[in-house]
């Protein structure tokens, strides 16, 4: 029982991170219908920015943890969204309106580029940072096993919930959200109504990158290690989460992220940890067999 509760906490934390990254996939897929393979690497870039940021602040003698967190979070979001913008501008915009596979290949190329760029400029070794948020709340213990809610886990869940509510408000209530949703439905019509489609798409990429940046900073704080390869694994997990929830659906992306986080946590605890990826993908295949457009996705209506 205690172990189950602990895994529930761990799974939710992991799921929150996957959900944040998954939103970037789902929004980009919704608006231009492509899998942004470089999104996982954007997240990786943000984690590296976080490492540099934390180290720099520690070197400058900033001892206050909340101050360091907020500063690094803001800086990382800023720089990472520039990366998101640049990726879209250089690799995807020239291919708008071409075949469906062309942007996919240039996205894979961009992913290879970013991974190797970071490997070259930041080094191939694993980067550890000293633990920042240590300690936590001991909930209860039974059979000598203490259920512990770490402060970093609280941070991740709180930040994710706050971001998600803000984001939902942005998409459903603001003028930008309306433009974004109308671009999703019909880009030509949106352009005819005088909305700058290119700008909206660029902003979508920047927002997705910003959310990935938050996830990157959180993961750096949570695990304390970063390397140039983390983007790939997190990327395919998050994309799986987006598909599981239904591509194009924001609550779906979050739900998918949570489900995948929970599957991983429980599978690792009770069954074989090394097969957790097999479990994740098998459940994805099973879900898609019965609901081909994901859990919360709208079934595609095809017009002839």
């Amino acid at each position: 029982m205690a172990l189950a509760l602990q895994q529930l906490i761990n799974g939710l934390t992991l799921g929150a991170v996957y959900g944040l990254i998954a939103i970037g996939y789902t929004m980009v897929y919704g608006i231009i219908g492509m899998i942004n393979f470089a999104h996982g690497d954007i997240y990786m870039v943000s984690a590296f920015i976080a490492v540099s940021g934390f180290t720099l602040l520690a070197g400058l003698g900033v001892g206050s943890v909340p101050l360091a967190l907020v500063t690094v979070l803001l800086v990382s979001v800023l720089f990472t969204s520039v990366y998101g913008w640049a990726v879209e501008r250089t690799a995807y915009r020239p291919l708008r309106g071409s075949t469906r596979l062309a942007p996919l290949i240039s996205a894979i190329g961009m992913s290879i580029f970013l991974q190797n760029m970071v490997q070259l400029t930041q080094g191939a070794r694993v980067k550890p940072i000293p633990p920042m948020l240590t300690g936590g709340i001991d909930l209860f213990s039974s059979d000598g096993f203490t259920v512990r809610l770490a402060y970093s886990q609280i941070l991740i869940v709180v930040v994710t919930v706050a971001l998600m509510s803000g984001f939902t408000w942005l998409i459903t209530k603001t003028s930008f959200g309306r433009q974004q949703r109308s671009c999703e439905q019909d880009r030509t019509m949106t352009a005819l109504l005088g909305i700058d489609v290119d700008r909206t798409i660029s902003l979508t990429f920047m927002l997705g990158a910003a959310l990935a940046a938050v996830a990157g900073v959180m993961v750096t704080v949570y695990y304390g290690v970063v390397d140039f390869y983390i983007g790939f694994v997190a990327g395919i997990k998050a994309f799986t989460a987006a598909v599981l929830g239904g591509v194009g659906s924001l609550p779906g992306a979050m739900l998918g992220g949570l489900i995948i986080g929970l599957i991983e946590a429980f599978w690792s605890a009770y069954l074989a940890a090394e097969y957790k990826d097999v479990a994740t993908f098998s459940i994805l295949i099973l879900v898609l067999m019965f609901r081909p457009s994901g859990l919360l996705g709208r079934p595609e209506v095809e017009k002839v």
Binding site: I35, I285, L286
Partner: peptide
């Protein structure tokens, strides 16, 4: 067989997952 009903990018992610499943099994 299980992916027959899937379209486009749903199929893409399932095939990606299948590739990873095979690799993880081979490793472990």
């Amino acid at each position: 067989w299980p992916t027959l009903r899937l379209r486009g990018d749903y199929l893409a992610i399932v095939t990606l997952g299948f590739g990873e499943i095979i690799r993880v099994i081979l490793v472990n």
